[in-house]
Design a protein around this nucleic acid. Sequence first.
DNA 1: CGAGTGACGATTTTCAAATTTCGTCATTTT
DNA 2: AAAATGACGAAATTTGAAAATCGTCACTCG
Lengths: 202, 202
Amino acid sequence: MSELVDTGIDAARQENVTRILDSAERLFRHYGYSKTNVADIARDLEMSPANIYRFFASKTEIHQALCARMLAASYGQALETSRLPLSASERLRRYAQGQHKMTVETMLDEQKVHEMVVVAIERDWHVIEKHIDRMDGILADIIREGIAAGEFADQDPEKAARCFGASIVTLCHPQIVAQCLAKENRATPDELIEFAIRALKK
Amino acid sequence: MSELVDTGIDAARQENVTRILDSAERLFRHYGYSKTNVADIARDLEMSPANIYRFFASKTEIHQALCARMLAASYGQALETSRLPLSASERLRRYAQGQHKMTVETMLDEQKVHEMVVVAIERDWHVIEKHIDRMDGILADIIREGIAAGEFADQDPEKAARCFGASIVTLCHPQIVAQCLAKENRATPDELIEFAIRALKK
DNA sequence: CGAGTGACGATTTTCAAATTTCGTCATTTT
DNA sequence: AAAATGACGAAATTTGAAAATCGTCACTCG
């Protein structure tokens, strides 16, 4: 029985956590991260500011959870791509294209989102490190299968994944993407992706 | 005769420009870019602030010229490397290692230098674009020779150069280098360099 | 006549006071 | 007893007036 009760409590908690994050995301996107305070979020949800603190220890923690949720979406898409019934090369291609598309859309869509990203990177959050590790894990899996299939040269999949990820960083790193978007004299995303895939082949 | 006079005038101008840049570099490095004003530079050179403006239209222009000078040094080193009597692969390797070393040293050496870099990137200066173009030119030359020597696959050298440069951006871009220096779970510089070189081979 | 300067208005930056926001806690509500 | 709140001190942010800095210009000096 305690399980049922606990589940109920946890579900209610989760419900509140989600509502707070939804509200925070909406307000951060609209007014910007620094211009939104917890009182604004509380008002939006018709609860008291103090109540927010029953679910998040700080405004920072809200931001952190929001980042995690966005990165999880990115991870989800990457994982889906990695399981398509395609050659390893083609999956890497789509992985990189998908990451680039998502980064561009997230960055360009809203000026306000950029603020959140800068804050996240500055504070050097664990969340981002975790994300990179997981993404490299996906890449390593694809590359491992590509090696097994004779598509790629024999090599350490983990190391290759880190190199592949690093070499397409200009497509995925929000700050760099923002810096390079307007530039002329640059390799196109597709050119760079083909380049990186070629490095894996034998 | 006017030529002789002109040369003399230009030389004197150049002398002053150099002295101002030397002083500015020293002060910027020691006190930081924003903490140094043109009066400080003038005092250091025992001239009036107004006189500085006979050589540079603004403090910004001094910063810009200083950036150009530093990037020219980087270019010079790269050009030297590119002309060594070595295989194309080895020259690319040393090029990338050299650029990384220079970036790390410049960034880590002084906290104050980082401020100058951030300002330069934020203002999105032409100077930096020019530098990237020149550096890609060097890379293209090496790659072209590598293709001719049968060391690399047949491909468009300019395109390959842009891709090579982009894929090792984590080693050369000051902001990213600063972000990744402490990180554990990353490809090492040498791993990444070998990866990028492999992409050029046939 | 060109190199160099002091004085000055316009713009930025600084700094401290006033205000806002953060996060805690005792208390109330359900 | 758990959920929610109002009130409050600590910390951060805004504000605006004072000070510093930027960049110009009429002028002097060699």
